[in-house]
């Protein structure tokens, strides 16, 4: 990372070791239901959650990319996280389900309204493109169907190098037995190639009762073929790196980035006393 995290996020404090996050909670128009979801997440000890808006473009008619509702309108009072004194932090996230290359429009202005950007590719070509070139934070692994392709080393290594993470959600596995099989099969298939690195586990919960406690999720990771430390990272430190990656993505495609300003300051520092050389230059030429 070219910058210290404290620049970008005043929170979570760098001293705390494990801060649990759940970066996928389905947004619900019913506010009381959403409030209950957030309350439960805070009670379980998640200090950051992301409300997920799913956007599934179809070829027939043109659809609008959803616009995130401001958090203050959705949730009345943010509950205090279990075991901490701070209120829970809520982010917005967009997931684009792509089945065709035209579905994901890089640099679309609509994407910038969201804190996190995820893509769910359904074909091997798109998976390759998502890993290697798309400007996203998360690549979702489908858990509701058997994967139509195998994971190859090249795109996965590319994604690991670029800092893009893979997401597995467990709520479908809780709902019924066939999807549990697909989830576990796809997860094990992914772990064989990426060896447990760069994976996050999230809930994709629609109801409060579909959330699970962080320690349960960590142990659930063993079913998905993750080792203990990797599955612990999957709910804490990897999620943090998603947030940091989101921050760099925003700033790089925007006007100014945090790392650039540091460099510019450094440049200015250099040029301030060095006004003379620049003045001298015309003499040389």
């Amino acid at each position: 990372m070219p910058f210290s995290s404290s620049h970008v996020f005043p929170w979570p404090p760098s001293s705390s070791m494990a801060v649990f996050m759940d970066l996928n909670i389905r947004v619900d128009p019913d506010k009381s239901k959403l409030q209950r979801l957030i309350d439960t997440a805070a009670h379980l000890g998640f200090s950051t959650v992301a409300l997920n808006y799913v956007f599934e473009p179809s070829t027939k008619k043109k659809q609008e990319i959803p616009v995130p509702t401001p958090i203050s309108e959705l949730i009345g009072e943010l509950p205090v996280v279990q075991g901490r004194s701070r209120p829970i932090r809520v982010l917005n996230r967009l997931t684009v389900v792509t089945s065709d290359a035209s579905h994901f429009r890089p640099n679309a202005a609509e994407y910038r309204r969201f804190d996190l950007l995820a893509v769910e590719p359904t074909t091997e070509k798109l998976f390759h493109a998502a890993c290697m070139s798309y400007d996203v934070d998360i690549v979702c692994i489908s858990v509701t169907e058997k994967l139509p392709f195998f994971f190859k080393r090249a795109p996965i290594n590319g994604a690991v190098d670029r800092g893009v993470l893979f997401e597995l959600s467990y709520a479908a596995a809780i709902r019924d037995s066939t999807r549990r099989r697909y989830t576990i099969a796809n997860a094990v298939c992914l772990m064989e190639t990426c060896k447990g690195k760069n994976v996050i586990l999230s809930s994709a919960a629609e109801k409060a009762l579909e959330l699970r406690g962080p320690y349960d999720i960590i142990n659930l990771g063993s079913l998905f073929g993750l080792s203990d430390e990797n599955s612990k990272a999957a709910v804490s430190s990897s999620c943090r790196s998603v947030l940091l990656h989101a921050e760099t993505r925003k700033t790089a495609s925007g006007i100014i980035s945090t790392s650039r300003t540091d460099q510019q300051e450094a440049l200015q520092d250099q040029t301030d006393p060095g006004d003379e050389p620049s003045a001298k230059r015309p003499k040389h030429s």
Partner: peptide, 10 residues
């Protein structure tokens, strides 16, 4: 216990 615990989320 880890194996049995992994069934509890379900």
């Amino acid at each position: 216990y880890k194996l049995l615990w992994s069934a509890l989320p379900f």
